[in-house]
Write a protein that binds this DNA or RNA. Structure first.
Length: 1126
RNA sequence: AGAUCCGUAGCUCAGCCUGGUUAGAGCACUACACUGAUAAUGUAGGGGUCACCAGUUCAAAUCUGGUCGGGUCUACCA
């Protein structure tokens, strides 16, 4: 017996997926999809490593769907796509997790728990949820190689990172410097930005803020200020710059004042409200209102006394910030520890920078390079040096007079603590150096462990000099295909433009150690690039330095490149001095950014040979990546570090195309968070709705880069609308193909021998292939998915199958029937291949069901066959156009029927279609039969102009006319609106028409207007676009009888079905008490018999056991039974 | 604070690049129809200040500038 198509009770996507998953596992379908393409052009994909110490969420499903579908698509296009998985295993989140679990803090590490034991814990925690990740990977159908993933904590991986660092070191791109970092004096440690982002670290606090007065020095350049001041006063004028701070303790370390180059500043004559001395002050114009009352402007200076409430003030001059650049001022708080010499630069000058705002303060920023990142940056730019007058405990250093050794904040919980900030303010007030002192409430970061305010403090750190190749990185970025484009140009482009050097240092424990050893004086250093190199150096140091040096590592060499082991190692410098490792770890982002190299590890042969790229195969054919994809939050993370390292190491991009997907929000548009309890469990979602429906929904609902409002209702819709329809279409084919034994054994019927509708759906199908391929090639899977959806729903199911249903169940196994089968089969088979990248399970299931019978492909899985290619010969635009006409015409007629309440089963005589041009008529003629049967009408008549029935409508063609006429459009449009039928005819006949607009002649061309038929007087009409149809609604007695017959057929069919007969069962029918229906039955008897597969149709006078039914409100009795004949 | 994306029907989204005169789908809702795909399907209907303001233009959902609201990233600094 021939193989049968599988038939099902109902669509059950999760069940299908379980079945397909088992098949994939059994046949190693993924491995095969790679090995089958051995020798083919590689398509290179990099997997961004997830961290397996947390559970996977639904947002992981979207980015992985994206990655998966591209890789599957490219595989089907004939490329070999290797997909090495990876795990990100270092970093703070892991450490914090372990600390929490053990109930310890960072200080305990090395004290209550050894670094060795701690790191062991981290190592165990790292892959805690690996099983869950593997599970979701499998269930969501993500094909990635999990058997041999790269793992960032492995020695081989770290070794490669070291090699990369060494290369940077050799290029002089690795340097040690201070940077301003958040620092907790109470805890004695720097804080990462991640730690600063812990909830609750930013608190509203009230600090003593002071507007300090920095005394200007008179020079040739600042003369304009002093001259202006002089004019307003007979006294020897003093000029002060006002600068605001909420951290007065930074004032002794002040070395500069920063102003905005384009901010407007004013010089104001007034009095110091504390000392009541006359002063001239500089501040931003916008901020005058903060310090001066409007009523005081140009007030009575002479009458001013200490009791005067309202300060008199007057503007002496104004100027841009630019004018102040380089001007000098007197140091505010000079002490022996804070001399210009100690600063190491040329301090006490006015600087320009754009970070200055006029939101608050004075528009002049007090700049202490040691205690602010912006301060540091601008300070460096101008070379004003640096003074760090606070030590790591948070107290002032010696040599600051009365402030020496006082804590700048109450870090020790001293009950007798006196706020040094207040004392500084008081001192300034007394010295005529404070303009305003007040408590100021603002949000300030606190250490999440000690609850004490954080300082920004200069700390030693290692940097990669990314700024050295900034221009090159910008240039290389321009060659990268960003999806969406704006992310690459905007977010990423700006980021590159404003790049700073990459701070590599992390003072933590679990991570890649910096492979740099230094002598204590810092004069000699060594960067180690491989395990072997380290072992050699270990032995050398032992020999040179002797003693106990490195004894543990002499025998087997170093076995683990992590802390604490590497810290034990002492190396020896060229001059014979001991060298110790720089204690920092490196930023985890370096780990992932170097994955193109480290995922393969070092090839020691190549290394020995001095290869520039000493990485194991298949690195050479797998760099750079053709494609990567991650969430948009990685723009400045992974996307950046990959790019930076590619450019730094090899002057190359690391990836050619990058897709950044947006965030997944909940259905109300809120971010998903555990706290809000609105997270979607990907396991549950996939179990309930199936991975395919989930994937399809994620991809088609919104462009990947738009943020997605995740709504389970949307998945349900996809399931019903798309997969349900496709499933039904397959069921339909299976049902009849099994009856007829269709297995695509016959030769394919040539296209020109197939009916119009078959050629049409095949034309549409090939158009679809073309468009879907273009969309995928452009990394627009959303477009691709929506195109397929439209085709399946609109074209295949709602038009082709609906119109062709009869062809499948009616009549013999004829050429026409075979053509229908072949056509529908080809559509389904092609769709299974088109959707395979997005919905891999259902596609393979559908493909398997079809191919299992026909064996048209030898491949066992849709993922091993090639992607369909469009056959241009099958595409016929005119055909697609006229089918659209047919659909529109049918829709119009059905609409008209509806209006007059004549059901479709009632045949009608004719419709009229006015045609104004012969092409449309020719097009309509070819689809006439389809329209007639769809709307159950006997004939179509075409009305041409000559008939004189048509009433026409004319409208200006704005697009064509607008260009030519411009301003006259309105008048012309109105004139055209007034055209009579005769005017229209004349225009049509002569091809042009003379108008007069604003007393100027104007020739109107025929192509500059649109003429449509609007009405046929006396008929029911309806139109859409340029198509108009009229319906003859007269039901003649003949038509009514035919309608009755069709209605009766319908009733008998229903009885057949209710009785559960097979499709092919023959029946016998008896009709009784036919009454007025008798004539219909007599006349259409043969038709009725054929339709209901009746061998006998008999009318009797009395039918005792007949079932009473109604046919068009006329009663009749029917008796149906299976025919006795076989 | 800066950068960026988004704002069109009750909901999810097209259309915007390339301006053109009835602004479209699907879901949901209502009514009707169909009934050999039937837990399917068709037709029709209601539903829109295209976030707001200004500009450019004969013409703006579409181009320009700004405002407001939402998301994200980067900062959080005087």
């Amino acid at each position: 017996m021939a193989a049968k198509y599988r038939e099902f009770q109902q669509l059950n996507l999760p069940a299908i997926e379980t079945e397909i998953l088992a098949k994939w596992t059994e046949h190693q379908a993924f491995e095969q999809s790679v090995s089958l393409r051995e020798g083919a052009t590689p398509f290179v994909f990099y997997e961004g490593p997830p961290s397996a110490n947390g559970m996977p969420g639904i947002h992981h499903v979207i980015s992985r769907t994206l990655k998966d579908l591209v890789c599957r698509y490219k595989t089907m296009q004939g490329f070999q796509v290797k997909r090495k998985g990876g795990w990100d295993t270092h970093g703070l989140p892991i450490e914090l997790g372990v600390e929490k679990e053990l109930g310890i803090t960072k200080e305990d590490i090395g004290k209550t728990i050894s670094v060795e034991a701690y790191n062991q814990k981290c190592r165990e925690a790292v892959l805690r949820f690996k099983d869950k990740w593997d599970d979701i990977t499998r269930k969501m159908g993500y094909w990635v190689d999990l058997n041999d993933p790269y793992i960032t904590f492995k020695n081989e991986y770290i070794e490669t990172l070291w090699w990369c660092l060494k290369r940077l070191h050799q290029k002089g791109l690795l340097y040690k410097s201070v940077s301003i970092q958040p620092y907790s004096p109470a805890a004695g440690t720097g804080l990462s930005s991640h730690e600063l982002n812990q909830p609750g670290t930013y608190k509203d606090v009230k600090d003593t803020s002071v507007v300090a007065m920095f005394k200007a020095i008179s020079t040739a350049q600042s003369a304009f200020l002093f001259e202006a001041a002089q004019m307003g006063s007979t006294l020897d004028a003093e000029v002060f710059y006002l600068a605001w701070t909420t951290t007065p303790w930074t004032l002794p370390s002040n070395l500069g004042l920063t102003v905005g180059p384009n901010i407007d500043y004013v010089l104001v004559k007034t009095f110091n409200p504390y000392t009541h001395l006359p002063v001239n002050v500089v501040l931003a114009q916008n901020l005058l209102g903060k310090y001066f009352k409007p009523e005081g402007e140009n007030g009575d200076f002479a009458a001013y006394t200490a009791e005067t409430k309202i300060l008199p003030w007057t503007i002496l001059t104004s100027f841009r910030g630019k004018a102040l650049e380089g001007l000098r001022y007197e140091q505010l708080l000079p002490y022996e520890a804070s001399t210009a010499e100690k600063s190491g630069g040329d301090p006490f000058r006015i600087l320009l920078d754009t970070f200055v705002t006029t939101e608050d303060g004075t528009g002049i920023v007090h700049t202490a390079p040691a205690f602010g990142a912006d301060d540091y940056k601008v300070g460096r730019k101008y070379g004003i040096g640096i003074l760090t007058l606070v030590d790591r405990e948070g107290k002032f250093v010696d040599g600051l007079g009365e402030f020496s050794n006082r804590f700048v904040k109450n870090y020790k919980d001293d009950p007798n603590y006196v706020d040094v900030n207040v004392d500084i303010s008081v001192k300034l007030k007394k010295e005529n150096r404070a303009f305003k002192v007040e408590k100021y409430e603002h949000s300030y970061p606190h250490c999440w462990r000690t609850d004490k305010p954080v300082l920004y403090y200069p700390l030693d750190a290692w940097f990669i000099k990314t700024t050295a190749i900034k221009d090159r990185m910008v240039e290389l970025n321009k060659t990268i295909n960003w999806k969406p484009k704006a992310t690459g140009e905007g977010r990423f482009g700006n980021w590159l433009e404003n790049m700073v050097d990459w701070n590599l240092s992390r003072s933590r424990y679990w991570g890649t150690p910096l492979p740099i050893w230094r002598t204590t004086d810092g004069n000699e250093e060594k960067c180690i690039g491989s395990i072997e190199e380290l072992n050699t150096e270990i032995r050398r140091a032992s020999e040179v330095l002797g003693g106990d040096i490195n004894t543990h590592y002499l025998h087997d060499g170093i076995l683990d490149l992590h802390k604490p082991y590497v810290d034990d190692v002492v190396l020896v410098s060229e001059s014979g001095k001991p060298m110790y490792r720089e204690p920092d770890l490196i930023d985890v982002w370096f780990d992932s950014g170097a994955m193109p190299y480290a995922q393969w590890g070092l090839d020691y042969e190549k290394l020995k040979a001095g290869d520039e790229r000493p990485f194991k195969a298949p690195f050479d054919t797998n760099y750079p990546a053709d494609f990567i994809a991650e969430g948009v939050d990685q723009t400045r993370g992974w996307f950046y570090t990959l790019h930076a390292l590619g450019a730094l190491l090899y002057d190359s991009v690391a990836y050619k195309t990058v897709v950044s997907n947006g965030l997944v929000l909940d259905k109300n548009g809120n971010k998903m968070s555990k706290r809000l309890g609105n997270v979607v469990d990907p396991f549950k979602t996939i179990e309930t709705f199936g991975a395919d429906a989930t994937r399809w929904y994620l991809i088609t609902n919104a462009s990947p880069w738009d943020s997605l409002k995740f709504d389970l209702e949307g998945i349900r819709e996809v399931q019903r609308k798309f997969f349900g329809t496709l499933y039904n279409t397959y069921q339909f084919l299976a049902l009849y193909a099994n009856v007829d034994g269709f297995a695509f054994k016959e030769a394919a019927i040539p296209l020109d021998q197939r009916p119009e509708i078959d050629r049409w759906i095949l034309s549409s199908l090939n158009t679809l292939i073309k468009e879907v391929t273009a969309a995928f090639d452009d990394y627009e899977p959303t477009q691709a998915g929506r195109l397929v959806e439209d085709f399946v729903d609109e074209h295949l199911s709602n038009w082709y199958v609906r119109l062709c249903r009869r062809r499948f169940w009616k009549g013999d196994y004829s050429a026409d029937k075979i053509s229908a089968y072949q056509t529908l089969y080809e559509c389904l088979e092609t769709i299974s291949r088109l959707i395979a990248p997005v919905s891999p399970f259902f596609a393979d299931w559908l493909f398997g069901n079809l191919n299992g019978v026909t064996q048209r492909f030898t491949e066992g899985s849709v993922h091993h066959v090639l992607y369909p290619t469009a056959d241009a010969a099958k595409i016929d635009p005119a055909l697609e156009e006229r089918m659209q006409l047919a659909q529109d015409a049918s829709s119009l007629v059905l609409g008209l029927r509806k209006k007059v309440n004549i059901k479709v089963r009632q045949p009608l005589q004719r419709i009229l279609i006015p045609v104004l041009d012969p092409v449309t008529k020719a097009q309509l003629l070819k689809v006439e039969d389809l329209v007639k049967s769809e709307v159950n009408v006997k004939e179509i008549q075409y009305l041409t102009d000559a008939d004189g029935f048509i009433k026409k409508k004319i409208k200006a063609n704005f697009q064509a006319l607008g260009k030519r006429l411009g301003g006259k459009m309105k008048a012309v449009s109105a004139a055209i609106g007034n055209f009579s039928q005769a005017d229209i005819s004349r225009l049509e006949k002569e091809g042009s028409y003379s108008l007069e607009i604003d007393s100027e002649p104007l020739i109107l061309q025929i192509h500059e207007v649109e003429i449509t038929s609007e009405d046929i007087p006396g008929w029911m009409v309806s139109s859409k676009g340029s198509l108009t149809v009229a319906l003859d609604v007269t039901v003649t007695p003949e038509l009514e009888q035919e309608g009755n017959a069709r209605e009766l057929v319908n009733r008998i069919q229903k009885i057949r079905k209710d009785n559960g007969y097979d499709l092919t069962d023959r029946i016998q029918v008896k009709l009784g008490e036919a009454g007025s229906l008798a004539e219909s039955i007599r006349q259409f008897g043969p038709y009725i018999k054929e339709e209901v597969l009746a061998d006998e149709l008999e009318m009797v006078d009395h039918l005792a056991d007949g079932m009473p039914i109604e046919v068009n409100e006329k009663a009749i009795k029917v008796w149906v039974d299976k025919s006795s004949r076989a």
